[in-house]
């Protein structure tokens, strides 16, 4: 297995899928400012995905471009975590999903910006600056909705209860990352989960939300085993390239 390819692909697919999910809000935001915010954030993620998938293609060395990887793979070849493909449902669910993910991305990029692999480090350094904005935005909404009205509290608590089962996978580790850490390409991920948990605890406490007691967790995304939602995303995402191969504008 080509670990550099696989690892970069995982990061790229996470960005691509959550970026796509956020872009689905375009024109449907609850207020104009949030419509603009979510599409701005979507743009950051799609930009990151472009850099990461281009790099993955380079690591693979088979001449596939970032676009080839984004638009011309089958569902089993996507390696994003299940969390980022979960549907938007409502604004609260979207913000909770975003918060749980941003809280993981920040400490991840903080580590990766020092990777000895200079290309991964450069993308991490760039993305980290944006991630700080994203995390602040999603944290503020989780707090506002959690510590808001009875209705908003109930709904965002429900979102947390549903999405919690997808958070364990954020810290999935196998030969791919272990090999890169051992080879010194990327730094150790020690303490990553602890840092994530600290942010999550702090914000959820402020939001008066309760972390579910069950610690049962889904996984599979990193191995290409997805929830049913990914197929629908791909249908939408790949439509143009499947219907009109090679189309450009």
């Amino acid at each position: 297995m080509n670990s550099l390819f696989e690892y970069t692909l995982r990061l790229g697919d996470d960005s691509l899928m959550i970026g796509h999910r956020l872009s689905e809000w375009c024109g449907h935001g609850p207020i104009l400012e949030e419509d603009i915010a979510m599409t701005n954030i979507a743009l950051d993620f799609v930009g990151q995905a472009t850099s990461l998938l281009e790099l993955a293609g380079k690591f693979e060395g088979k001449g596939r471009s970032g676009d080839d990887l984004a638009f011309l793979r089958f569902d089993r070849d996507y390696k994003n975590v299940l969390l980022v493909e979960q549907p938007n449902v409502d604004f609260g669910v979207t913000m909770m999903r975003q918060f749980l993910f941003d809280a993981y991305r920040k400490p991840l990029f903080e580590r990766l910006q020092y990777a000895s692999n200079k290309e991964i480090a450069a993308i991490a350094e760039k993305s980290l600056k944006e991630t700080k904005y994203h995390l602040r935005h999603s944290s503020e909404w989780v707090i506002r909705l959690g510590d808001g009205t009875e209705e908003s509290h109930t709904r965002i608590q429900e979102a947390l209860d549903n999405l919690w089962r997808y958070t364990g996978e954020l810290f999935y580790s196998d030969d791919v990352d272990k090999e890169l850490i051992a080879a010194g390409e990327i730094p150790s991920m020690d303490g990553l989960e602890k840092e994530w948990r600290q942010t999550v605890n702090e914000v959820l406490a402020e939001a008066t939300l309760k972390i579910p007691e069950s610690d049962w967790q889904f996984d599979g995304g990193r191995k290409g085993m997805h929830s049913e939602h990914l197929g629908y995303i791909l249908t939408e995402l790949q439509y143009m390239q499947r219907a009109y191969p090679g189309l450009e504008w």
Binding site: E33, I36, A37, I41, Y133, R136
Partner: peptide
């Protein structure tokens, strides 16, 4: 501050 995100990526409102 109205919104952290404005008419382009680099601006707030």
């Amino acid at each position: 501050l109205i919104s952290q995100f404005g008419s382009t990526s680099c601006k707030a409102h």
